[in-house]
Design a protein around this nucleic acid. Sequence first.
DNA 1: CGCTCATTTGACGCATGTCAACGCGCGTGG
DNA 2: CCACGCGCGTTGACATGCGTCAAATGAGCG
Lengths: 247, 247
Amino acid sequence: METVTSGRVSPLRLVPRNGLCDKCQVRNVAACGALEDWELERMEAITVSKDYVAGQTVFEEGDEPKYIFNLTGGMIRLFKLLPNGRRQIVGFVFPGDMLGLAARGAYTCSAEAIGAVKLCRFPREKLLGLLDEFPNLKSRLLDMAADELSEAQEQMLLLGRKSPVEKVASFLWRLHNENLRVGGPESRIDLGMGRIDIADYLGLTIETVSRTFTKLRNDGVITLEGANHVLIADEDALQELAEAMGD
Amino acid sequence: METVTSGRVSPLRLVPRNGLCDKCQVRNVAACGALEDWELERMEAITVSKDYVAGQTVFEEGDEPKYIFNLTGGMIRLFKLLPNGRRQIVGFVFPGDMLGLAARGAYTCSAEAIGAVKLCRFPREKLLGLLDEFPNLKSRLLDMAADELSEAQEQMLLLGRKSPVEKVASFLWRLHNENLRVGGPESRIDLGMGRIDIADYLGLTIETVSRTFTKLRNDGVITLEGANHVLIADEDALQELAEAMGD
DNA sequence: CGCTCATTTGACGCATGTCAACGCGCGTGG
DNA sequence: CCACGCGCGTTGACATGCGTCAAATGAGCG
């Protein structure tokens, strides 16, 4: 947050043009925030806006990566499948995040819309071509890749070495921080997905996820508002569980 | 393997100079392979070669990332620790790989030499400065970050959804392919690390790792040559286990 | 009101972690 | 040269936490 990223946003003026990007909600957090106006125009020329419905596939693992995307609304799950059907969700995509960037030769995982989704689509080749002209953007993408890698490492720690309670607490803690980042409500978390997605993200079964929510409620750490909303009752306790402070 | 990476190596001539890089063993696989001779000279000017002994720390999670490294010999483990001491190894570094590149603001994990290690060290700021002059290198780093991310996703799948047998088989399969990549022996795998490292990489205990090796031996998939060398007895069986084809 | 699907809860078993003993190789020192 | 200790790996006995299977409950919607 306090790095290269933050210094970048300020000097941009949003001059009125008639393109997509002017009304883009995520421009301040997305990669295009690194662009000057004239660069943005070039981007816009190769950009198409696309809508997806809940459950719709954006791309599948192994597909030729013809496009790179920028999520402007909704939420996407990235996952890999084993031949026997077991699924691991390797990440969620939030508004402002890039999608399909890291793919070289083939998408390394599949992407599905969780709810209704809106995204900007760029032909991969053309975007990569622009990269040579816009060194700013290239650096920005490198930074984003670094952040993704860092998150992936954190997730490996979670999957390999955390207990179910710690996993669920970590998951809630992350959503909470994502809320804070985009200036959402203080302590009300919208899960935005079902128990299956949570389970496949945390390497658990839906039953264990459900039981763990119940346990956290009984321990006074959270309150449940229906199945899809969580109120943080004891923020310190949640953080300690998430970071596995108590043995 | 068949992507951007492979086309890159051919046009380079190794003109005789008196620098470090001329005798570098990994130049063909490392990032510096993307450089022209005059660029390489610039790199060399900021490069220092360093040696580490077994178990020595290269950097620790949270440290300010003053340096970026390129491993030229030996093997390094990257790991994260939980407050209670549990450890997750998030990756191994092989000769030719970059180290500490993704860090922004702080190293995201710790790095230790597994055996004796030799690496090239670049001051981070200076290297990043050179990036603006060498767009080739920047692209190459972006590609390397993409590959790392892909590996991380594969590891998440392993940690979250594979059984112990599948985990160990995957691990052996990876070392096997790494062997092939660098033109090593066909079916003899040098583990190069102890059971604790394997366990902390696969999210298991050392006992389970040991029992799993024994099971794979009894099932005729591998042969054990001491504790540190594995012969692949049934390559197809190993691959099927690694990719979780059965069940 | 009743269907369907998601979530919760319960009962049970097994796989994997835990704790402990043993064997082996290796270096050190008597 | 052998005795010893130490670290590492293997094996065994045991327990328990999580997955599996099944049923109950609840929410959304026609």
